[in-house]
């Protein structure tokens, strides 16, 4: 869903696993939908890690633990913090719809898979790449105090662990930053540039 970004300050949900693939984020059997209802995908985010075969919550999965089970809202659980190589595997954008649908606005990791990173950006979920050291400290901060908050400042491209005060700059190109801050998507841009596309075709055909 198109929404404007500025500064987000929120508690986090930690998922300290590496190589979380998009088949786990949203299993293939939920890909049969022909609409983009984010609430449907959000309900099935991490389905097989969150629920057992009888559809009962698995108590050992972080989303079901008392400290983290509250659904995201302003300032609460709007940030997912995940281990290295988040979103690997399948290109399914349904994974980004599920993350957005659950209520996350930011995902912090030390490394994202390419296609999934683009999919998040195209759905107004911000992937924030931090150093391994920042990530390790952030996991520790959340373990010590699940109520701790992180500030993600999009205009300044700065992420801060408010428990330790540690800050880092994160990458975001000027074009995408403008899009995120003004809730514009790439198709809006491309449609304004069809003359350039026709020029290219005239030269190359």
């Amino acid at each position: 869903m198109k929404q404007k970004f500025n500064i987000i300050t929120s508690t986090c949900i930690p998922l300290p696993l590496e190589n979380v693939d998009t088949d786990q984020i949203i299993p293939a059997r939920f890909l049969k939908a022909t609409t983009r209802e984010e609430s449907f995908f959000g309900e099935n985010l991490f389905r097989d890690w969150r629920y057992d075969k009888e559809n009962q919550p698995k108590q050992d999965f972080v989303f079901n633990k008392p400290d983290f089970k509250e659904a995201p809202r302003e300032g609460v659980h709007q940030i997912l913090v995940a281990g290295k190589n988040f979103g690997s595997g399948s290109s399914r954008e349904h994974a980004a719809w599920a993350i957005a649908g659950y209520g996350f606005r930011v995902v912090i990791s030390s490394f994202f898979a390419d296609i999934h990173k683009n999919n998040e950006l195209n759905n107004f979920v911000l992937p924030v790449v931090v150093s391994e050291a920042f990530l390790a400290e952030l996991f520790q901060s959340i373990a010590a105090n699940p109520q701790m908050q992180v500030e993600v400042n999009v205009p300044e491209q700065k992420v801060t662990n408010l428990a330790t005060g540690r800050s880092e700059h994160f990458e975001l190109n000027g074009y995408k930053k403008y899009c995120l801050m003004n809730a514009l998507d790439d198709i809006d841009f491309l449609l304004e540039n069809t003359d350039k596309i026709e020029d290219w075709e005239n030269v190359n055909k």
Binding site: N118, D185, L190, I197
Partner: peptide
């Protein structure tokens, strides 16, 4: 590519 990008190509034969 993702589905939003499929839409970009449907609409403009281009991708960013």
């Amino acid at each position: 590519i993702g589905t939003s990008e499929v839409e970009m190509v449907l609409a403009s034969q281009c991708i960013l």
